[in-house]
Design a protein around this nucleic acid. Sequence first.
DNA 1: CTGTTAGCGCTTTCAC
DNA 2: GTGAAAGCGCTAACAG
Lengths: 382, 382
Amino acid sequence: MIRCPKCQQVDAVTKAGIVRGKQRYFCKTCAAHFTLADTAPPAARSRHQVTIVDIARELGISKSTVSRALRGQSDIHPGTREAVMELAQQLDYQPNLLAYGLVKSQSNMVGMIVPEFRHYFFPEVIIGAQEVLQAAGYNLMICQSNESYQTEVANVKALMSSRVDGLLVSITSQTNNVEHFRALEKKGIPLVFFNRICPELDTHRVVVDDYAGAFRAVQHLIDQGYRRIAHIAGPPSLLVSRLRQQAYLDALEQAGIPFDPELLISYDLTDEKARIYARYLLDLPQPPEAIFAVNDPTAIQVILAAKARGICIPDELAVVGFSDDPISAIIEPGLTTVAQPVYEMGRTAARLFLETVGTQTAPTTRVLQTELIVRGSSSRKI
Amino acid sequence: MIRCPKCQQVDAVTKAGIVRGKQRYFCKTCAAHFTLADTAPPAARSRHQVTIVDIARELGISKSTVSRALRGQSDIHPGTREAVMELAQQLDYQPNLLAYGLVKSQSNMVGMIVPEFRHYFFPEVIIGAQEVLQAAGYNLMICQSNESYQTEVANVKALMSSRVDGLLVSITSQTNNVEHFRALEKKGIPLVFFNRICPELDTHRVVVDDYAGAFRAVQHLIDQGYRRIAHIAGPPSLLVSRLRQQAYLDALEQAGIPFDPELLISYDLTDEKARIYARYLLDLPQPPEAIFAVNDPTAIQVILAAKARGICIPDELAVVGFSDDPISAIIEPGLTTVAQPVYEMGRTAARLFLETVGTQTAPTTRVLQTELIVRGSSSRKI
DNA sequence: CTGTTAGCGCTTTCAC
DNA sequence: GTGAAAGCGCTAACAG
């Protein structure tokens, strides 16, 4: 029932052809033509974003038609499509993703949970992931768990509430209980772990050959003639820590070097603790000749502590890290480190999600390769 | 019209009291009791997330009541509330933010657009902003414009489509046209610029006292006895660049040092170009005695270039940067720099958004203070 | 205290 | 080709 904008009558109104894409009406009482645009409410509120209904009303067509035209569906009159497109452009129409998501029950967002992003590693992963995801029409929602299990659970909940289509996560060092991830699996939400994976969960994973990389690193120290080699490990709760530590132990054993428990330290990966343990090792009655650190931030703290004590690197102490943080090339001497393709790890995790979504793929593990970069901290020849 | 699950009849059904929070019905034909849960469809699809309707059906109450209970509204029977809460917990119910956003026309998300996040600065801002926002119940959606105007426009569109409640942005160096931001203003979407602001837009801003900080930096170089001082500036399109550059010029003039145009270079802030211009300056027939760089990444490239040429810092060349990137304290010699409260900048931008949203506040500019940190790159006394 | 109804903006049958 | 109607999950009047 169309109401005449002038006399407010309904019964006297009849259709009167289409002019410039708009349905016109005629009121027999007023003897005047009008379009639906004329019946529109006076001046929409400024907060109101333009919708397909606005376009439809203005053009005197149905919102279904507008919707179809906007999505470039085939069964649409070219003229109509053009009119819709033009008006949409003119009105700066932006589709409402919330509404879209509600009906399609997908949000075009993927969530990412990382323990921190102060250091080089995670931001770089994010860059890689975001690139791939954005190209595929997805947006990334990033959360920091701050190494807190509680926060991680809260993050998962928040991302679930936002109905993300998938999750890329690197767990905290405190994550013992993984029920919050199991819940995702049950709901069929693609889950990709990277770097810090959950061994007890059979999901997609992206890792590097941590064991091999670490083994090569320690091997390199041994080759350089160092025998008393310490290891500052990450928390044993993380698989990466355990793998790198095991590689350390195995490399020593293979070289026939007896393991000295005094030289193995596990810690929580905070910068303050790194400083403390670095000093502790250097102050040992019989200090190590070399230190293999679980990651570059740790190794850098070791170098700084050694320099503060006037210890000469690499003559009195060799240092090796893991990841090839850009600082490794800047600090003096340069830090020998096990480079991992961080950016590629982000891209791979994103791609794994993309492959999974829709077609339920079986859990896949992608292993990327590392490479030992030898710099001055472990070799005089550089 | 309630249908009996047994005989499929409608007319023979009557209400029969409430048992354990659930509305019970009685079918006169079958002479049997049942609840609405019994009439539920067989096994919901696994992809189906639990909704308030599921809870309502299970409990035999209306979804409005569930909605009210969940939100802890007052006019709710304690027993009902408890039953709802318990079932929600048990079913791992997560409210659908898309639906919520649709009806409230707010998404509880705020967008952030930064030119990059490879260096220290922007990730640190993000950390600060996210902390404040998360505490207020908002999620952050981060986009990188990669210094591309096109990408920035696309980012704005994408965030608008996601119906973010506000935007925190640092523009690209190529942003000349600001119509995409004007459109936001028109729609009444809170917009906060930080660090790289848009002078032509009258919005909220968070900046540091760039001019004062830069002036102090150059003044410091002059005080240390350096006279031939170069400046590697950022692109003139950015206000920060222009301010720091003007401070450089003014400090020279105030000290009566004639300005040598050969010693002023503007560049696009990419690492490669930084390297190139650093070498260029060092290779001048009459090279500068000191270089004030627009930011720390630039200054670090200068130090690396100088070291590669065997130039002694600070004896033959002094270097000063801007921002106090952590690398500044690690590189040798330590980089003198103008520290700015980066983390605080993120927090402030977020707070400004929070203050604005709802109550339309007049455009505010918050100016944070900088502090000169003197290290070895500009002073022998350190 | 609780249920009913309408509607947020969009897609998707099902008709014509 | 196009329109009408239903529905995604939720909140918000408006009745009782």
